[in-house]
Design a protein around this nucleic acid. Structure first.
Length: 471
RNA sequence: GGCGGGGUAGCCAAGUGGUAAGGCAGGGCUCUGCAAAAGCCUCAUUCGUCGGUUCGAUUCCGACCCUCGCCUCCA
């Protein structure tokens, strides 16, 4: 079965066909490190992680690139406000970003280029555009991209969405634009140094002192790592315009070659049914949610329950529901591990085919989860009837391990059972509780259960004795 | 104003021209010292509203209502 994905370029679902299979070059628009990333940002990053993991599941050799934008208007403003240095300021949020990425069990991209470390590449790209007369230096010293000239070269501006400049509302932002552009639609490639920038500027023989515009770093870095044409480019739907459109313009304007084959865009999420905003109190960073007692695993699962092109209503109640669903999976895996013992088996190709078929359909995760949960119920029934053999249990477990390469929820032996360090301590508590139970001191037994629960372990009494279960 | 998504059970969420996946919650049962533990079973005559096409529409067409997003800071 072939993977089909919605391509924003064609606004239709197309078969995914990389330029040089099995290699896939994939670029995800990463964070602008001026604050902690919020749950909306994470939806997009987890979506990127899903795409990468699924491509790898399908056997592609993926090169995953994610930029770190560490110089930009908002950053400069905050550096000034906080009277700190650019590097110190962005370093803090960048470290937090990678920590969060790990919390959500996202695979680390193979390359995470920084804008500030690619200034020379950015300048070279701008020079190329100036040489082709597509970019021009304005009276304010900044360099702009001329959409008119670009179009004059036979290129199309407006590949990702229908644009009609006459119908567009000249918004406040356009009016308040202080730059000296020839046309309002033109955008900055290089912003000339102004006093407010403080120490944040680079010197360039040809461009003068200044710093990169917002879109150019993605063109420069993606082409540097993945080549002038590559397979996949992902981002949030709000980046379609202007960011991605401008990336295409800059890149194709400079190289004359098609930039990206497939554009994927993740939809926004709502929080409690409303657009996330600080004033509504529904603005959550990942850290806010962790502070509320949710785990990265629960948040990841929650984000992976809805189709990426649909607006997803993220709610705290939904997140709580997630805990139950995950617990069901955890218990199921416990059953399997216990049954299988040391038996090993190949995964269930039929089940994996159904799973894969669902995801081939434009990453229909809901359908894929449906396949998984139905399988769990069916298998649980067999277990309850004592009809699942050790070999079959091993097969089921192997199947989960395969599935989980895509979902990244966890469930390996290492995750399900206590670590060596805590094993003895937990074991003692468990024994104490058993002793209390035997003595019919249920009050004490329950107290110990609460103690274990506080440490993240649930107890399940079975005919074979109590079992610890990770909560 | 221009462009583009959505409206499916209490909540979240798939889906199909032929009579509604899955998860959570709820209800029942089993097991249990008890379970707040776990498993099984059950849970939408109905898919925003009104028309149309059709043997048959939630699915196609039209109108309308509601909602969300983008329109040069934004995942």
């Amino acid at each position: 079965m072939a993977l089909k994905l919605f391509n924003t370029l064609s606004r239709s679902i197309q078969e995914f066909a990389p330029l040089a299979p099995p290699k896939v070059g994939m670029y995800c628009c990463g964070p602008t490190v001026y604050d902690f990333a919020h749950i909306g940002n994470w939806r997009t990053f987890v979506f990127g992680d899903l795409v990468r993991r699924y491509l790898e599941f399908k056997g592609y050799a993926v090169t995953h690139v994610m930029n770190i934008t560490d110089v930009e208007d908002k950053i400069i403003k905050r550096v000034r406000e906080n009277k700190t240095s650019l590097r110190e300021f962005t370093g803090k949020y960048e470290a937090a970003f990678f920590e969060d990425l790990k919390t959500l069990n996202c695979l680390l991209p193979h390359h995470t280029p920084h804008a500030t470390e690619h200034i020379a590449d950015i300048i070279a790209l701008i020079e190329k555009l100036i040489a082709r007369s597509i970019a021009y230096k304005a009276a304010d010293g900044s360099v702009y991209f001329s959409i008119e000239k670009y179009r004059g070269c036979g290129c199309t501006y407006g590949q990702l969405l229908k644009l009609n400049f006459d119908e567009m509302r000249a918004g406040e932002r356009v009016k308040s634009d202080e730059y000296a552009k020839e046309s309002v639609a033109d955008f900055a490639l290089w912003k000339a140094r102004v006093p407010e920038d403080g120490d944040v500027f680079w010197k360039s023989e040809s461009l003068g002192e200044g710093r990169p515009g917002w879109h150019i770093e993605c063109s420069a870095m993606s082409m540097k790592v993945l080549g002038e044409s590559f397979d996949l480019h992902l981002g949030g739907e709000d980046l379609i315009f202007p960011h991605h459109e401008d990336e295409i313009a800059q890149s194709e304007g400079a190289t004359g070659k098609p930039f990206v084959k497939h554009w994927l865009h993740g939809a926004f999420l709502l929080v409690e049914g409303k657009k996330m905003s600080k004033s509504l109190g529904n603005f959550f960073t990942l850290r806010d949610l962790l502070a509320k007692g949710f785990t990265g695993r629960e948040i990841r699962f929650s984000l992976l329950t809805a189709h990426y092109r649909e607006t997803f209503n993220f709610t705290l109640e939904g997140l709580r529901a997630t805990r139950e669903a995950l617990s069901r999976i955890g218990t199921f895996l416990h059953f399997l591990l216990e049954l299988k013992g040391l038996n090993e088996a190949e995964s269930d190709s039929e089940l994996l085919a159904a799973f894969s078929e669902a995801l081939d359909d434009d990453l229909n995760v809901s359908k894929a989860w449906g396949v998984v949960f139905e399988w769990i119920r069916k298998t649980n029934r067999l277990i309850a009837e004592g009809k699942l053999s050790k070999q079959e249990a091993a097969k089921c477990y192997a199947t989960w391990i395969e599935l989980d390469k895509v979902f990244g929820i966890g469930g390996t032996v290492e995750w399900l059972y206590p670590k060596e360090a805590e094993k003895r301590f937990l074991g003692e508590l468990l024994e104490d509780r058993e002793a209390a139970r035997k003595a019919k001191d249920f009050k004490r037994a329950d107290a110990i259960r609460d103690e274990l629960k506080a440490k993240g372990w649930g107890i399940e009494d079975t005919p074979k004795g109590p079992k610890l279960k990770k909560i």
